[in-house]
């Protein structure tokens, strides 16, 4: 078996999700190659070559891949991946965009968002917003798979010594063009891979009050998230949303503040190692999944939390 992992990156840095996907590839077993497609992405190729368990890194460096347009990546990956038994990518917005194109071009099914590998052709994945877990077997000769990164412990960043090969394949489908991008700038860790996440819900009442959470997050080196209710109410931007339709997170510690705990939200965070919840409603469903629950008014509790953390950290 031979597995092609498509690297997730921003042209300068390899994203940690790639290391999680390589871990999923290792669970399948076989030679693991990594494809880095981007523009001026040589450093990403070097980083991928150091990852534990990688045999070969293929670098397709061209302006047509610079913005990871699904039409171009789809054609590239379908051509390169044709000789592999498995093609894997992280189930982020880039992978979700181009991987089904790859599958369609190869005339195979895709298995989305796998959480576990049972064997080379059988995988476990959530359905119904995580309210049911399906074990799925693929009969296709090439398995196209997106991987839920938080479900696999990442392989070591260092230790490998893969060869790096430049690929001279330029696929410009001519169907789409990049226009612009607005990315939230933050010094805090990435929400999807942060070790600690502090999230606020509708109980925060407005966007201004999220500053309280940011102060706590900065003490802990944590990312800040939000429930869909808080995003829909316009308190914070949508890329902060944790839940089935937002980011799936599984940090060491998840602190839910003013979040009631709708199923939709729980589906995005219930794999966290430890969950702490602060809510003034003691009947809130979040307490049914929280390891530590504090029934309190968040506007009193969060400033106290900041003070207590300053004492112990």
């Amino acid at each position: 078996m031979s597995i092609l992992v498509i690297a997730e990156h921003d042209n300068s840095e390899l994203k940690q999700a790639t290391l999680n996907v390589v871990a999923a590839a290792k669970a399948i077993g076989g030679d693991i190659d990594v494809l880095v497609a981007g523009e001026n992405c040589g450093a990403v190729g070097e980083a991928a070559a150091k990852a534990d368990g990688v045999s070969k890194v293929l670098v397709a460096d061209n302006a047509v891949y610079g913005h990871f347009l699904g039409e171009n990546l789809g054609e590239l990956v379908a051509e390169v991946g044709n000789s592999y038994s498995h093609i894997l990518a992280a189930a982020g917005t880039v992978g979700k965009d181009f991987m089904p194109r790859v599958a369609a071009l190869l005339d195979v099914a895709q298995v989305s968002d796998i959480m576990r590998v049972e064997s080379e052709d059988t995988f476990v994945r959530p359905i119904y917003a995580g309210n049911a877990i399906a074990t799925v077997k693929s009969t296709d000769s090439i398995k196209v798979i997106t991987v839920r990164p938080t479900a696999f412990d990442p392989v070591a960043e260092e230790g490998g010594s893969a060869t790096v090969e430049a690929l001279d394949i330029v696929k410009d489908a001519g169907l789409s063009q990049f226009v612009s991008e607005e990315l939230a700038k933050s010094d805090r860790p990435d929400l999807a891979s942060a070790g600690i996440v502090v999230s606020g819900g509708r109980g925060m009442q407005n966007g201004e009050n999220f500053k309280m959470l940011e102060q706590v997050a900065d003490l802990l080196g944590a990312a800040v998230g939000a429930s869909r209710a808080a995003v829909d109410a316009g308190f914070v931007p949508n890329d902060m949303q944790v839940g089935q339709t937002g980011k799936i997170v599984a940090p060491q510690l998840y602190i839910a503040v003013g979040i009631s705990g709708a199923i939709q939200h729980l589906a995005g965070m219930s794999d966290s190692k430890v969950i702490a919840a602060i809510n003034k409603d003691e009947e809130a469903p979040i307490f049914q999944v929280a390891d530590y629950g504090l029934v309190a008014d968040l506007f009193e509790a969060v400033p106290q939390l900041e003070e207590e953390l300053k004492k112990v950290l």
């Binding site: 195979v108 995580g130 309210n131 399906a134 074990t135 009969t139 049914q288 629950g293």
Partner: peptide, 19 residues
């Protein structure tokens, strides 16, 4: 191309303690 071998309920988390 895909066959579903089984569908299970997710492992449920136990409620912890109130502080």
């Amino acid at each position: 191309r895909l066959s579903t071998l089984k569908v299970e309920a997710p492992a449920s988390r136990q409620a912890g303690v109130k502080v």
